[in-house]
Every structure is written in structure tokens, then in C-alpha cells.
Design a protein around this nucleic acid. Structure first.
Length: 423
RNA sequence: GGAGGUGUCGCCUAGUCAGGUCUAUGGCGCCCGCCUGCUAAGCGGGUUUCGGGGUCAACUCGAUCGUGGGUUCAAAUCCCACCACCUCCGCCA
């Protein structure tokens, strides 16, 4: 949610942001009208309430013969107050409902465009020239079969399409990545967290995953719980309804959790292997900070992501995500795309969003300093989702004989410098 | 899953049975001031949050006693539902 005061002070600012996102500005006009209506009805119902309270305080003091008349008057007034506050309440709900649909304000400087407009701001590393090395690169599934690292067939047998087992070397790879991610994040000042993967509707609503994104979410009807698509949900809701002392900021959390995605509407896309799956595990970074420091922390999160990908020795590009592809909550988003030799192109590996005060307002998370109480900023970023790094490690570091080179940073956690078939 | 108990404005707490200056008590902590070589003590004042009005300052009005409904002229107090926590029983990794 953005600051509602902006509707009165600068509605054009909100409209510009919607235009940049490629969305209609009608919502802003509706909101301005709903806001005015809401305020008028609140003012009149509160005035009536004050009058009613005054009158009802006189009841116990009234003499026996005054009482019946007084009670009749105050009874009548009570009914009017009831009607007026019901109108005010309805107007408030209408307003709140519209507010929840309004996306975050886009930060100035975000490139305009949609999903297909890729703004590459940096390229790090160089893809290997397999032709020069004299062999055709295999895709991750072929390599994994040789290493007995991934079992897709039994994943499908047990759970269905887009499920898999990590076996032997595959499982060891995830555990090694997890250990490296946790070690690095601790070094950077993040508190390790293992959050629940099932959350209440309020947590999903607050983080902005129940709008257009709701189709992609698993829901357990019997228990009214959602399976999270990212631990961002639990980490943002962690401090919901709280007021944090400014001295305790920034708060940094690094969470390891499973992520569940229905992948509705992606039939036929990335069907091979573990690129697009219904479940994977991920280490996610999350920051609560003063809104004044949010852009600085966003840059730091991107820096951590880049450092981690470099430790994995995977060539990658950094993208400034276009305004039309930001989603509801983000004011700016940077993605890192890692190179996939079998596809000959870069694919999404990490994503970091600056949500400014948007999620904090929805989840009622505030900070207190000498200036008073106000919403804080939340930011999130992928440190290491497990499936895609495994793909990119296997493919980029494959050797002609079917073995796989292990990057220096992972060796302490894997206990080897090369993964060989038959191990 | 079954039985019982608890939830008060940072923390602790009075008030709930018998609805009406509760316009929520007291203590601790914290903030401002006074006193004081310094510190402590002492004295005085302040200290929930949200929303409306406002020269967005002083101030003012409404709401807020776990949450949401209900009864009533009037609810912390009575009724219903839900949530969280505690104790015991059952089941379970």
C-alpha cells in the first residue's frame, strides 16, 4: 500500500507511476472519490457519536420523571449513530479494497517496458567456447543422469509432472550450496532463519501475492493456509503488527525454506529437467530498514547476489527489470541471469526487489525514532535458489568425459574438486 | 482430538462476579524539567496506537482493554464466534 495522503497531495504522481507500468489510471480517480466519501462519512458519524455519548452520560443523573423522555431520545439517537457508522464503515472498506489493488510507486529511473524488454546493465564472466574445446555441451539432465544426481521419472511417478528427486551427488550439491549460502550470509550480517512454508491469508495478502499472482499459489482449503512460493512471505509477516526501534535497524534475515509454485499458464514452457518446477528450496535474504536507506540496501543485496554467483563461477548478466514487469510490490527490481550453455542464453537465477514501504503498510510494520512512528522499508533478494544454480553448475562446469568441475568455494562443502559418474 | 484456565495503552498490575465520572488504577522502565561539585536519591510533568478536523504546530474529536460480531440509552465488565498462550489427558516424529 502506498501513502494514502498522496491521493490528496499529489494524485498525478500516482498516475504517472501507473502509466509507466502500462496500467490504467482510472483506479486513481476512483480512489480520490472514495477517499473523499470516506472522510465525509467518518466526520459526520463521529460528530453524532459524540452527541450520543454526551446524552447517555446524563441518564444515570436524571430524575425519575425525566428518565423516560431522555431514554426515548437517546434510543433514537443511538439508532441514527448505528446507521451513520455503518455507512462510514462501508465507505472505509470500499476505500481499503481499492487501495489494496494499487501497485507500488515505481522509482524514477526504472526503464520502461514489459516482460520482453531486457535491460542488461552489466555482464560478468564469459561463457565457455565449447566448440573450441571440441565437444558439444550436454543439457543438465543428461549430465545429471550420468552422475545419478537427479531422478525425474520417479519424481513424476511419486508426485507428478515438474517434480523430481535430488539423489546422491544432486542432494550433496544442494546441501553444499546451502552451507555456502548460510556461511556467506552470516558473514554479511544476516540472521539465519528457517521459517514455516505454510502461512495464513493475511501474510499472503500483505506481501501482495493474492492479487494477479494468486493463480500461481497452492492453497489448502481445509485449513485456510497457503504454501509459500518464497520465504519472503513468512519473513515479511514475521514482524507484522510490530513497531521496531530504529536503533535495531537494519534487520537482516537469511531464510532457508521450500518454495511451491503451481506454474499455472506455463504449460509447455521449460518442460525438460528442473528449470521450472512446482517445488524447490531456496535461501532468501530479507531486509527491514529505514526508507531513507532502502536504495542503498537494494544495491547491497544485488552486490551479495553477484558475489555469490561469482563464487559459483557462473557467467551472468545483471538486468534492471522494466517497469511493466515489477509486480504489485516492487518499486525497483534487479535480476541476475546466469548462462545456460544448452540453451545458448542467459536465464533468471536471482531477483532482488525494493518494496519501499508498500509491504510494511499492508502488514502494519513500523519503526520508531525521534521523529515518531512511521512505516519502514522491506527488501528481498534471492541468495541461492537450489534448482537453477545446480543446472548452471552442471552445464557450465561439465567436462568432455561427463565429469563436472567443482568451483573453489564449494570444495570445502563437497569434499572434492570434481564430480565423476559412478561416485 | 478431549477437559480446564488465561489474554488490560513497552513490561508487571487494579478493575470483570453485581454494566454508568473507567474520561482505565498503581508500580517499573523511558523522556523532559527542577534540585545538586558529579552520580544516585528526591520533587514536578509527560509517556498506547489508528483515524477525522486543524496555520498539518499547539490543540481538538472519534475509536482502541486478544480479534470480530451481538445485547443495551450506555460494555474492559453481559452473550456468541474466532485467535493466541498456559495446564492436564489422548495421539504422534
Amino acid at each position: 500500500m502506498i501513502d494514502p495522503k498522496l491521493l490528496r497531495t499529489d494524485p498525478d504522481r500516482i498516475k504517472r507511476s501507473l502509466q509507466v507500468r502500462g496500467e490504467s489510471t482510472n483506479l486513481v480517480d476512483d480512489l480520490v472519490a472514495a477517499d473523499e466519501r470516506r472522510r465525509a462519512l467518518i466526520a459526520s458519524s463521529e460528530a453524532m457519536r459524540a452527541a450520543q455519548l454526551e446524552l447517555s452520560r446524563q441518564v444515570p443523573k436524571a430524575s425519575a420523571d425525566e428518565k423516560p423522555a431522555l431514554l426515548a431520545r437517546t434510543r433514537e439517537l443511538a439508532q441514527q449513530v448505528k446507521d451513520a457508522s455503518a455507512d462510514a464503515e462501508a465507505a472505509k472498506l470500499t476505500f481499503d479494497d481499492l487501495m489494496l489493488r494499487l501497485p507500488n510507486l515505481v522509482i524514477d529511473g526504472v526503464p520502461t517496458g514489459g516482460e520482453d524488454d531486457l535491460y542488461v546493465i552489466e555482464t560478468v564472466g564469459t561463457p565457455r567456447d565449447f566448440a573450441a574445446e571440441g565437444f558439444e555441451p550436454k543439457d543438465h539432465l543428461e549430465i545429471a543422469e550420468g552422475l545419478a544426481a537427479i531422478d525425474m521419472d520417479r519424481g513424476a511417478k511419486v508426485s507428478g509432472a515438474r517434480f523430481y528427486f535430488l539423489t546422491g551427488i544432486g542432494a550433496r550439491l544442494e546441501i553444499a550450496l546451502l552451507n555456502l549460502a548460510m556461511a556467506k550470509s552470516a558473514e554479511w550480517g544476516f540472521t539465519p532463519m528457517i521459517p514455516p512454508a505454510l502461512v495464513r491469508p493475511s501474510a499472503m495478502e500483505g506481501t501482495g501475492f493474492l492479487g494477479q499472482a494468486a493463480e500461481d499459489v497452492y492453497y489448502l482449503e481445509r485449513d485456510d493456509l497457503y504454501l509459500v512460493g518464497t520465504s519472503e512471505v513468512a519473513l515479511a509477516a514475521y514482524h507484522s503488527e510490530e513497531i521496531l526501534d530504529a536503533a535495531s535497524l537494519p534487520r537482516r534475515y537469511a531464510a532457508f525454506s521450500p518454495c511451491y509454485r503451481r506454474e499455472a499458464g506455463s504449460y509447455g514452457k521449460d518442460t525438460k529437467g528442473i528449470f521450472r518446477v512446482h517445488w524447490f528450496d531456496k535461501v532468501e535474504m530479507f531486509v527491514y530498514c529505514d526508507p531513507a536507506d532502502a536504495e542503498e540496501w537494494h544495491a547491497k543485496l544485488l552486490g551479495f547476489e553477484k558475489e555469490f554467483i561469482q563464487l559459483l563461477e557462473i557467467p551472468f548478466q545483471v538486468l534492471d527489470v522494466a517497469s511493466g514487469d515489477l509486480g504489485l510490490s516492487a518499486a525497483r527490481k534487479y535480476d541476475c541471469y546466469g548462462y545456460v550453455p544448452s540453451q545458448g542464453r542467459y536465464r533468471e537465477l536471482t531477483s532482488t526487489s525494493n518494496c519501499t514501504e508498500f509491504q510494511a503498510r499492508r502488514l502494519n510494520i513500523r519503526m520508531r525514532d525521534s521523529d515518531g512512528v512511521r512505516p519502514l522499508a522491506t527488501l528481498n533478494g534471492t541468495l541461492c535458489s537450489m534448482a537453477r544454480p545446480i543446472i548452471m553448475l552442471l552445464e557450465n562446469h561439465q567436462q568432455a568425459d561427463g565429469s563436472v568441475y567443482v568451483p573453489l568455494a564449494l570444495r570445502p562443502y563437497l569434499g572434492t574438486d570434481v564430480l565423476r559418474p559412478g561416485e
